[in-house]
Design a binder for these strands. Structure first.
Length: 260
DNA sequence: ATGTCGTAACGTTTACGA
């Protein structure tokens, strides 16, 4: 079961690049972030005609997450529990019915949090506390499950080409990293780091200042696996070349393969 | 030289978020 995560930065602008990648990479499941579309305007037909079930949790202009799945989906829910007043579309989850094993899959778009300090950073940290609560429940269930998406977290200095440029940024502040570790340390496996060590691996390159041409990137898109999901992992890769194509997103896909 | 892109809105341009 190949499960990918991709922050597409706007479905309207990315439809062609996204379908090209889907046709090549052939993920069974794709978790999308920043669809920047209300549900009614999401072009679900272009995915349905490729055999995907489509579930969206969108809003106007910003944010928005979706699940595309060639496998059957059950028990789809939207919204991260813990704050009924939160109107950002940043969380969607579903159970993917694999040939042998069902996997609970959570797609997330964690708040950026800049500028920090400030109300946006407070919102980010509060959201991460809610994420931790949901994560605790997933661990307690003792079943194959994962949380994947744009975490807007640079876990360590080695995850940035120029860590000094991000030292004061909401994506890399010590409080941000500590909150991320508190989730991971509940018992999750950070899929990419379980398989690949060392610097130079990124999932985001800013559109500005020739960041891509200088490989001036950061690694902020992650997969966290419960122990039961980690046992099934056979691969995890970043599709870096996507960033060099026509009309790219500023993020690239990252994916895991589970023997499920 | 401080560099781009996507989206929405009383829009031939600005504001916001990233």
């Amino acid at each position: 079961m190949k499960i990918a995560s991709f922050n597409i930065n706007g479905i309207k602008a990315r439809a062609a690049a996204l379908t090209d990648w889907l046709d090549e990479a052939q993920p069974d499941v794709a978790l999308l972030q920043e669809i920047k579309s209300v549900d009614e305007n999401f072009p679900r037909e272009i995915f349905e005609e490729r055999g995907y079930n489509v579930e969206t949790h969108g809003q106007k202009s910003f944010n928005g997450v979706a699940i595309l799945s060639k496998l059957p989906l059950e028990d789809v829910t939207i919204g991260l529990p813990g704050d009924d007043g939160d109107d950002h579309a940043r969380w969607i989850e579903a159970t993917v019915m694999g040939e042998r094993t069902a996997v609970r899959v959570c797609g997330l778009y964690l708040p950026n949090g800049n500028p920090a300090p400030g109300p946006k950073y407070d919102y980010k940290l509060a959201w991460m506390e809610r994420l931790k609560a949901r994560a605790e429940a997933l661990i307690a269930a003792e079943e194959p499950a994962l949380m994947a998406g744009d975490y807007n977290v640079i876990p360590q200095d080695e995850d940035a080409k120029r860590p000094e440029a991000w030292a004061e940024d909401a994506l890399a502040l010590p409080q941000t990293r500590a909150a991320f570790r508190r989730v991971v340390n509940l018992g999750f496996t950070e899929a990419f780091r379980a398989r690949v060590q060392g610097p130079g691996h990124y999932t985001f390159w800013d559109y500005q200042a020739g960041a891509w041409n200088r490989d001036d990137g950061i690694r902020i898109d992650h997969f966290l696996l419960t122990p039961q999901a980690a046992d099934l992992m056979t691969d995890c890769q970043i599709d870096k070349d996507i960033r060099g194509r026509e009309k790219p997103s500023d993020h690239v896909p990252i994916w895991v393969n589970l023997d499920a």
